[in-house]
């Protein structure tokens, strides 16, 4: 792929200024997403994945604030946009869907209202043509008889159906980028598979880039082109999905991969990463993973800088796996 990427996140820091102290939810994270590309953003709970997503779409609420870094989207730095300029981007060029489909749709508004308002927020069109776009978007995410569905309320839908509606809303304005924050975690496995498949198909067809946030590496394996691993708010490593899964360089990525149940390792006990995620409040300098890392040495008390061990791969570690 040539030319500048669609999205370039560069040294992003997003901190919460709470009474108890500064929570460095995102602390020096960099990655890029090309047009039509799918990036898997992976990490344990609390590693700052959602906050990275909110930073990109400009929905960070106080006491949180982006303190450093650039988010360059199609040539403009989003961290410098004012409220008016944001409205032209959010929901139209960048869309986001959330984890819990039971909570993302407004319970007291009909589906048609919720889709039509998304269209009309960005295009000066009549209700009829907005409805036509809504219908088309619902069909694209695999919802049959959209007319009937449009007149319903969210509580009349199953979880999987609601998430499809949310995806349709994200798609309706033909965005360049969709941030999907664990949209299948709350669904059962078969529905999860269907939605993954449809999402991938739709994005490929329309050339929409996708950031798929998840803690589940097995989801990323079949979906993403690139993977970016985060730990305790920090960037850990990134690279093409097959490379990372085959040959993880960072001990944390290796731990994550080993803790995924796999077919050819059946019968063997799963390996787990010992210890717990550190509190972001008391996190000092140095590699945040060193207390749980088997390769850690005294050197790890300093922060390693990001290196490029091979083309297309980036890593922040002094002692990569061989």
């Amino acid at each position: 792929m040539s030319g500048p990427p669609l999205l370039q996140v560069d040294g992003l820091r997003m901190h919460f200024f709470t009474k108890a102290g500064v929570v460095k939810a995102v602390d020096d994270v960099s990655f890029s997403v090309g047009r039509g590309e799918i990036l898997g953003l992976v990490g344990e709970s609390g590693s700052g994945k959602s906050m990275t997503g909110y930073s990109i779409i400009g929905l960070v609420d106080p006491p949180g604030r982006i303190v450093e870094g650039r988010i360059v989207f199609d040539g403009t730095d989003l961290t410098r946009l004012d409220a008016a300029a944001w409205r032209g981007v959010r929901g139209s060029r960048i869309a986001m869907i959330f984890q819990d489909p039971m909570m993302t749709l407004n319970p007291v508004l009909r589906i048609d209202t919720q889709i039509v308002e998304a269209v009309q927020a960005h295009a000066d069109v009549s209700r009829e043509s907005a409805l036509a776009r809504a219908r088309e978007a619902l069909v694209r995410v695999g919802i049959a008889s959209p007319d009937e569905r449009l007149r319903a309320y969210p509580h009349q839908f199953s979880g999987g159906m609601r998430q499809r509606v949310a995806i349709a809303i994200a798609l309706v304005n033909g965005p360049d980028l969709i941030i999907a924050d664990e949209p299948t975690t709350a669904l059962d496995v078969t529905i999860q598979g269907q939605i993954l498949f449809e999402m991938q198909k739709v994005c490929r067809e329309s050339g929409t880039a996708l950031i798929w946030i998840t803690h589940d590496l097995s989801v990323v394996a079949g979906l993403a082109d690139e993977v970016c691993v985060m730990y305790a708010g920090r960037f850990v490593e990134s690279g093409p999905v097959a490379d990372i899964l085959d040959r993880p360089l960072h001990p944390y990525s290796r731990g994550l991969i080993d803790s995924v149940p796999s077919r050819n390792a059946r019968g063997r006990p799963l390996r787990q990463i010992p210890g717990m995620t550190p509190s972001l409040l008391s996190l000092g300098p140095g590699c945040p993973f060193r207390d749980r890392c088997t390769s850690a040495t005294a050197r790890c008390a300093e922060s390693p800088s990001v290196t490029e061990p091979s083309p297309g791969r980036r890593l922040r570690c002094f002692h990569p796996n061989a």
């Binding site: 779409i57 929901g91 959330f98 749709l105 407004n106």
Partner: peptide, 15 residues
Amino acid sequence: DYVKFARAKGLTQGR
């Protein structure tokens, strides 16, 4: 979440 989602759609604060 539904408020965050509404904001993510790019609706005005008023709406």
